[in-house]
């Protein structure tokens, strides 16, 4: 009887080890679901995790149930807390990135700025109103002011400024303004020149208030 070459035996042993390790890792989340051995800190998400969905009749109900189950699973699968911790620690230690997030950019001193809804483009002054759009805003606000006025209600229009405008010094260096105008400055200038609607510009007040309470 000939003996199998050493390399084949080693390969076979390595394969058995690999299978055991892989299946072990694959079962970890399921085991954690029942045994709760993942004691990592919760990821600190400021939202309520979805509850287990209820089954409702009909195809629509079934679709809703599947979507609900998907959302429930995504927030409750085993070892999630550890995996998120590995992701956060790994990403910050390996790459030390301040960019590459879909919804925020990270400025200096760990300041976060929202980037969805074209906030960056608004701040940089890339997106501006057309004269027609400004006129539409005027018409809309005057209509609302008059409608409320007929009912004895005073109308004041307030735009809450974005964090980018009030704390621009912490923005990443690449976020430079294209010009001096933004949609908001256009809006205030237009309303001041063309309308009697009370519009409240909080930007200067908030900037001054920073000296009293910086953040």
């Amino acid at each position: 009887m000939t003996r199998a070459p050493t390399s084949s035996i080693l390969r076979r042993r390595a394969n058995v080890c690999l299978i055991i390790v892989f299946l072990g890792l694959l079962w970890m989340p399921t085991l954690d679901t029942f045994l709760h051995f993942d004691h990592s800190d919760p990821p600190g998400e400021k939202r309520q995790p979805p509850e287990f969905p209820k089954i409702k009749p009909g195809l629509g109900g079934l679709k809703e149930f599947i979507a609900g189950l998907d959302a429930y699973f995504n927030d409750h699968f085993g070892c999630r807390k550890s995996l998120i911790r590995v992701y956060r620690t790994g990403r910050s230690r390996l790459f030390n990135d301040r960019k590459g997030y879909r919804s925020v950019v990270i400025g200096s001193d760990g300041w976060f700025y929202y980037t969805e809804d074209q906030m960056v483009e608004h701040y940089r002054g890339i997106l501006l109103f057309t004269p027609d759009q400004l006129h539409d805003w005027q018409t809309l606000l005057e209509h609302q002011r008059d409608w409320l006025g007929q009912r004895g209600i005073k109308f004041v229009f307030v735009v809450v400024p974005d964090k980018h405008s009030i704390y621009p010094e912490y923005l990443p260096s690449w976020m430079k303004k294209v010009g001096s105008e933004t949609k908001l400055s256009q809006f205030f200038a237009y309303m001041k020149a063309h309308s009697t609607v009370d519009v409240l510009d909080l930007r200067q007040t908030l900037k001054e208030a920073r000296q009293l309470a910086p953040t």
Partner: peptide
């Protein structure tokens, strides 16, 4: 003038 700076997209991870 309105071009998005390349630095916005180039990250260490990318």
């Amino acid at each position: 003038p309105a071009a998005q700076p390349l630095a916005r997209y180039v990250t260490n991870e990318t």
